[in-house]
Amino acid sequence: MVKVLYIVGWGRSGTTIVDNILNSYENVFSTGELFYLWRRGLVQKRKCGCGARFAACELWAEILDVAYGSDQPDPEAVDELQKRITRVRHTPSLASGPLTDEGEEYRRLLARLYHAIGEVTGAKLIVDSSKVPSGAALLPRMRGVEPYLLHMVRDPRAVTHSWMRPTPQLDRPKPQLMQQHKPADSTMHWLVWNAFAERLYRAYPNRHRMLRYEDFAAAPRRTVEELLEFSGTPVTESPFLDDSTVRLEPNHTVSGNPSRFRTGEIALRADERWRADQRTGPRLAVTALALPMLHRYGYRVSVAA
Rank of each mutant, 00 (worst) to 15 (best):
K131Q: 12
R300F: 02
G298T: 04
A219V: 04
P205I: 12
A267Y: 04
S30K: 01
A116C: 00
E226D: 11
L170T: 08
N23H: 15
G135I: 03
I17D: 00
A111D: 12
L42D: 01
H90V: 04
W60Y: 05
D243R: 15
Q169Y: 03
R296C: 00
E26N: 15
D277Y: 08
W193E: 15
E105G: 07
N27K: 15
E80L: 11
L22Q: 05
K47Y: 07
D171W: 01
T263L: 08
A270F: 03
A267T: 10
P166W: 06
P220Q: 14
Y6C: 07
N23R: 12
I7R: 13
R40D: 13
V224D: 10
A123S: 14
I63M: 03
A290F: 06
D101K: 10
R247Y: 15
L200E: 06
G135D: 02
T187H: 07
E26T: 15
V286I: 02
T31G: 01
K124L: 10
T160I: 01
H181M: 08
D155L: 09
S186C: 11
G256D: 01
Y114G: 03
I7Q: 13
Y106E: 09
L248A: 09
R207V: 07
P292R: 03
E225D: 08
T31H: 03
T91H: 09
R300E: 10
R141G: 14
V88F: 13
I7F: 10
R222A: 14
T160R: 00
M1K: 06
A203H: 10
A77N: 13
L241N: 07
W60V: 06
E80I: 06
M164N: 04
P133E: 11
L211R: 08
E249C: 13
H115S: 00
R89A: 14
L268Q: 08
D242P: 10
D128R: 08
P156C: 09
A61T: 11
